Amino acid sequence: METRIALIGIIVENMEVVENVNQILHEYGKYIVGRMGIPYKEKGVSIISIVIDADNNAISSLSGKLGMLEGISVKTVYSKYGK
Rank of each mutant, 00 (worst) to 15 (best):
D55I: 01
G29I: 08
I24N: 03
V17G: 04
D53Y: 07
S63H: 01
S60N: 14
L66M: 05
L66H: 06
I47L: 13
E16F: 05
I47W: 00
N14C: 04
L25I: 07
V21F: 01
R4S: 14
I24F: 04
G64A: 04
V74S: 11
L62K: 01
M36I: 06
V21G: 04
A58R: 06
I32C: 09
I11T: 14
N57P: 00
M36W: 00
K75W: 02
Q23D: 12
P39Q: 00
G67Q: 09
E70N: 13
I5Q: 13
R35G: 05
G67M: 07
V45P: 03
S73D: 09
S61H: 05
V45I: 15
N20Q: 15
G9V: 05
A6L: 08
L69A: 12
S73G: 05
G71C: 11
K30T: 11
S61P: 03
I10Y: 09
A58Q: 12
D53L: 11
A6T: 07
K80T: 08
H26D: 14
I10C: 05
N56I: 12
I48C: 08
Y31L: 08
D55E: 09
D55G: 10
G71T: 12
R35T: 11
I50P: 09
G64C: 00
S60E: 15
V74H: 10
G37T: 02
G71L: 08
A58L: 06
E16K: 13
E42D: 11
N20D: 15
E70K: 14
G9L: 06
K43E: 15
K83Y: 04
I24T: 02
T3V: 15
E13R: 12
I48K: 05
K80Y: 07
G67N: 14
G64T: 06
S49R: 03
L66T: 04
D55P: 05
N14I: 05
G67P: 05
I24H: 02
V74W: 11
I5L: 15
I11K: 04
R35L: 14
Q23G: 02
V33G: 01
I10P: 06
N57D: 13
V12L: 15
M1K: 13
S46W: 03
I11H: 04
Y31F: 15
V33Q: 06
I32S: 08
L25N: 01
K75F: 07
A6I: 12
I52P: 10
E42W: 00
E42F: 01
E19H: 10
R4P: 06
S73K: 14
Y40M: 03
I59R: 10
K30A: 04
S73M: 08
I10V: 15
S61A: 12
I72H: 07
E2L: 10
I72M: 10
V45E: 09
I11Y: 01
Y28C: 11
I32F: 06
E2P: 15
E16A: 11
G29K: 15
E19G: 14
K65P: 00
L7D: 11
N57S: 13
G34C: 09
Y81P: 02
N22C: 03
